[in-house]
Design a protein around this nucleic acid. Structure first.
Lengths: 229, 229
DNA sequence: GGCCTTGTCAAACGATTGATTAACTCGTTC
DNA sequence: GAACGAGTTAATCAATCGTTTGACAAGGCC
C-alpha cells in the first residue's frame, strides 16, 4: 500500500513522488500535505519551503509527470507529405503507431514490470491518473500548459488522417480524430468500468490484440482499406 | 453563478439540488456542507438530520440523479431476434438510437432550453458530471449500485452488434461495444478538451450531424454496410 | 391542556486543514 | 572562528471541517 521512498533521493524528489501517489489516489482536495510529507518521510513544512505551498506542489507534480514523458508521443515520425508515393501506407502506419502509444501506456501500469520513465508501475499508473484527470477537468492554473501539451497529439493524428482522406474538411477531420482518440482514451479513463464489464481487467498481454482491434476498427471507420499497407 | 433555489420546494429537495450543483463543481472533498446548505438556504445541521451526514447526502444525490433518468436508455427497444427478417435494419436502427441517446444527453446541457428531467440545464449538466465521474472512479459505497445501472447499456448495444456480426465471439463483441461506447462517452467526459481543440464547444445544433458521424464511423468499424437500413 | 414527533435553528464541539514561526544543524565562505 | 545561507525540525497559527447539542415552533393525538 504505502510505498517505501528511496532514501537516497533528495527530499524535494521524495516529496514529488509522494505527492504524485497521494494526489492520484485522493485528488487535490482529498490529499493532505501531512500525509504526503509522512509518505516522503519528510516534514510537512518543507512543502512550503520547496514549493511555496500545496498548490505549488501540485503544479510541480504535474510538470514532473509531463517532463518524464509519461504522456508524450513516442516513435511517431512526422505525417508523410502528400507527394510521397508511400504516403498512404506511411499514414496507416502512423495511425497504428499512434494507437499503440496510448494502448501501451494504458496497459503497462497494470503489469508488474519494473522500469519505465518513473521506475515503478505504481508511479506510472499514478502519473496517468493525474494526467488524464487534468485533461478532463483542467485546473485553471494549468490550462495554457495543457493546451501546449495536447496539441501535438491532435496535429499528428489529424495529419495522418488528412493523407488518408484528403476529401474531408477540417471539421470532419477533427471528428475522425475524435472517434479514434476517444477509443484509446477510453482505456485510460474507464479501468473500473472495463473490469466491471469484462470481469477481468486488460493487461499488458492484451496490448497487441487491442492495438489491432482499434486500428482495424478505426481504418474501417475512416473508410480506408488496409490494402497495400 | 449561484442559482436561486425554488422556495416552494421542501428543504430536503433544495438540499439535494444544491448538493448536486456543488458536488459537480468541486467534487466530494472540495464541497463543504456549509456551502451546500447556504446554497439551499437551509441550516447546515439539516444535512445530518435528513441524510445522516455528508456521505449519506452524496449517496442520496447520486440516487436522485439516477432516479430522474438522466442516464437511462431512452426509446430503445429490445434487440431484434435473429429470425426476424428485418433483424438487420432493426439492429442498425438500434445502434443509431443508442448513439443518439448519449449524444443528446451530452449536448442538451450546453443549450439554454428549459425542461428535461431536472427542470434546468444547469442541473442536467451537473447530473451528468456527477454520474460520469462515478462511472470512471466509483466510490466503493456505490460500486454495486453502479454495476446494476451500467449493465443494461452494455447488453443493449452488444445485442445489436451480435445481430450484425453473428460471427464474433463474446470477447470481440465487447471490444466492438467498447469502441462505440468510447466515442459517445468522449463527448461527455472531455468538454474542455473539445473546446480547446475545436475553438468552440459542441452545442445542441450539432447533435444530428454528430449522431450521423458516430453511426457511420461505427457501422463501418463494425464492418457493416448501411445498405437497406 | 399535556405530550410526543417533526423540522429547523444558532451555537459550539473536537479534529484537521494549510500555513507560519523560531530554533537548530550543517557545510561553505570570508 | 565568525558569519552566512540552505535545509530541516517541532510547535503553533487561524481557519475550516463535519458533526453534535440543546432549544424552539408547529402540528397531531390522547
Amino acid at each position: 500500500m504505502t510505498h517505501t521512498p528511496d532514501p537516497t533521493l533528495d527530499t524535494r524528489h521524495r516529496l514529488l513522488e509522494a505527492a504524485l501517489l497521494t494526489f492520484a489516489e485522493k485528488g487535490f482536495d482529498g490529499a493532505g500535505i501531512r500525509e504526503i510529507a509522512q509518505r516522503a518521510q519528510a516534514n510537512s513544512a518543507l512543502v512550503q519551503y520547496h514549493f511555496g505551498g500545496k498548490e505549488g506542489l501540485y503544479q510541480e507534480t504535474l510538470r514532473f509527470v509531463f517532463d518524464r514523458g509519461a504522456c508524450k508521443i513516442r516513435d511517431l515520425s512526422a505525417p508523410p507529405a502528400p507527394e510521397d508515393p508511400q504516403a498512404r501506407s506511411k499514414a496507416i502506419a502512423g495511425v497504428r503507431a499512434h494507437i499503440r502509444s496510448f494502448v501501451e501506456d494504458a496497459l503497462a501500469c497494470h503489469g508488474h514490470a519494473e522500469g519505465g520513465p518513473f521506475g515503478s508501475p505504481a508511479l506510472m499508473k499514478a502519473a496517468l491518473v493525474l494526467w488524464n484527470r487534468e485533461v478532463q477537468d483542467p485546473r485553471p492554473s494549468v490550462h495554457a500548459f495543457l493546451q501546449e501539451a495536447v496539441r501535438p497529439f491532435i496535429e499528428h493524428l489529424v495529419g495522418c488522417i488528412r493523407v488518408l482522406r484528403p476529401d474531408l474538411d477540417e471539421e470532419r477531420l477533427l471528428r475522425m480524430d475524435m472517434s479514434i482518440h476517444a477509443q484509446v482514451l477510453y482505456l485510460h479513463n474507464h479501468p473500473e468500468l472495463l473490469r466491471l464489464v469484462r470481469g477481468r481487467p486488460f493487461g499488458p498481454e492484451d496490448a497487441e490484440s487491442l492495438v489491432e482491434h482499434f486500428t482495424t476498427f478505426s481504418l474501417r471507420g475512416l473508410g480506408v482499406s488496409e490494402q497495400g499497407a
